[in-house]
C-alpha cells in the first residue's frame, strides 16, 4: 500500500524545534537547570501520511508531540501547520488550530474524566468549539461511538465501566469529534494488551483511510511503529538521529543508535532470535541536563571517534529521503 504523497503537500513542518525546561532552585532561585528535552528537531509531515517517532524514554518524542500542539510553549524554532507558523501565536488563536490538531494519549485510564459520562466526554470538544447543540450534538456523539466500534448505549456509561481497549476507543472518538486533519498519537497502544493493540491499530488505519487523517505516531514499540508508519524518525536525547521510509529504515539502518535499537527488538520466533546477533548497548541514556558534547550518542557508540566528541554531526540526506546524523557518513 504505497500512498501517492506529493512532496509539496506538506501539512506540518517542524523547523529546528527546541523545548527546554528551565527549573530554578536554591534559596533565591539563583541556580537554574536547563533540561534540553528537545533540542533542534526538524521534520515534515505530508498530508495523509503517518510519521512514526521512536526512541527511548527521555529522548524527547512525547515532548515534541506536546510542543507541536502547544501544550508546552516553544523555546525556539518554528511549527508550520498548513502554511502558518503556530509556534508563537496566542493561546486563543491556538484554540482555532486545536480544532484541526488533536491528540490521543497513552493512558486511557488517566486521560478520561471519571466523573463524566462517555457521551459528555466526547461531547465536550463539541461544546468548547461550539460545533453542535441539542439533538445534533447527540447524533454526532452516537455516530462517533459507532465509528470507533462502540454503540449508542455506551454514551450514558462512565469510563470505569470500560476495558482499556474500549477506553482508548473513547479517547479516539473524542479526538475525532472536532473533525481534525492531524492527530498526534502519543503511545496510544502501549498500555493495551497484545490482542487488543491490533484492534486499535487497525481502527486507526481505517479512520485514516476514510477521513484522510495525518498522524504523528509516537511509540517505543518499534515493530508496531514500523507497521503503521510510512516514514519513521528516530530520536535520541532530544535530537533526531535518523529519518527514512519505514522499510528503508529497517533494511538499511544507518545510525549506530538505530542499528542497536532495531537489534534489541525481541523477535517472537525462537530460531530467529537465537541466531540473531544482538548489539547490546552499554550503560544508560545520559542526562538531558548535561548532554555529551558533539554527538550525543558517542558515550554509548561502539564506533565513536575523536571527532564525535568535538563536532555535532550534521543531519543530512545520505540517500534519497534518508537522513542521518553520523560522522561515519563523512568518511
Amino acid at each position: 500500500m504505497s500512498k501517492q504523497l506529493n512532496d509539496n503537500d506538506v501539512l506540518l513542518e517542524v523547523k529546528n524545534l527546541k523545548k527546554h525546561f528551565v527549573s530554578k532552585h536554591g534559596l533565591l532561585a539563583q541556580h537554574t537547570t536547563r533540561v534540553q528535552a528537545v533540542d533542534g528537531v526538524s521534520f515534515k509531515i505530508r498530508r495523509g501520511e503517518t510519521l512514526g517517532l521512536v526512541g527511548e524514554s527521555g529522548c524527547g518524542k512525547s515532548t515534541t508531540g506536546r510542543t507541536i500542539i502547544r501544550l508546552y510553549d516553544v523555546t525556539d524554532g518554528e511549527v508550520i501547520f498548513d502554511g502558518k507558523d503556530i509556534s508563537k501565536i496566542s493561546q486563543s488563536e491556538m484554540r482555532h488550530y486545536r480544532k484541526r490538531i488533536q491528540m490521543i494519549f497513552q493512558d486511557p485510564y488517566a486521560s478520561l474524566n471519571s466523573r463524566m459520562t462517555v457521551g459528555d466526554i466526547i461531547g465536550e470538544p463539541l461544546d468548547i468549539h461550539k460545533i453542535a447543540q441539542g439533538e445534533e450534538r447527540q447524533k454526532i456523539i452516537w455516530n462517533l461511538l459507532e465509528r470507533v466500534g462502540l454503540n449508542k448505549e455506551h454514551a450514558n456509561r462512565y469510563p470505569h465501566e470500560f476495558s482499556g481497549g474500549q477506553r482508548q476507543r473513547i479517547g479516539i472518538a473524542r479526538a475525532l469529534a472536532v473533525n481534525p486533519d492531524f492527530i498526534i498519537c502519543d503511545e496510544p497502544i502501549s498500555a493495551l494488551d497484545v490482542s487488543i493493540q491490533a484492534q486499535v491499530v487497525n481502527m486507526l488505519e481505517d479512520l485514516q483511510k476514510e477521513l484522510g487523517l495525518t498522524y504523528l505516531f509516537i511509540a517505543h514499540d518499534l515493530s508496531m511503529v514500523k507497521h503503521i508508519s510510512d516514514r519513521i524518525g528516530v530520536m535520541y536525547l532530544g535530537k533526531m538521529v535518523e529519518l527514512a521510509d519505514s522499510n528503508e529504515l529497517y533494511d538499511n539502518p544507518n545510525h549506530p543508535y538505530t542499528q542497536a535499537l532495531l537489534s534489541a527488538i525481541p523477535i517472537p520466533d525462537p530460531d530467529v532470535t537465537k541466531a540473531a546477533k544482538r548489539i547490546v548497548l552499554q550503560g544508560d541514556v545520559p542526562s538531558p541536563i548535561n548532554p555529551p558534547s558533539g554527538c550525543r550518542f558517542r558515550t554509548r557508540c561502539q564506533y565513536a571517534m575523536d571527532i564525535c566528541k568535538e563536532v555535532e554531526p550534521e543531519f543530512k540526506e545520505i540517500a534519497p529521503n534518508h537522513f542521518s546524523a553520523c560522522h561515519l557518513n563523512n568518511k
Partner: peptide, 24 residues
C-alpha cells in the same frame, strides 16, 4: 491469535493485522 496479531518486522508490504476480536 496472539501470534497473528503481532506485526511481522521484515514484511515489506503493509498487511493488515489480524486482531482477536472481543475482550477477555
Amino acid at each position: 491469535g496472539l501470534l497473528k496479531s503481532i506485526p511481522k518486522l521484515h514484511k515489506k508490504e503493509k498487511e493488515r493485522l489480524i486482531p482477536i476480536d472481543g475482550t477477555p
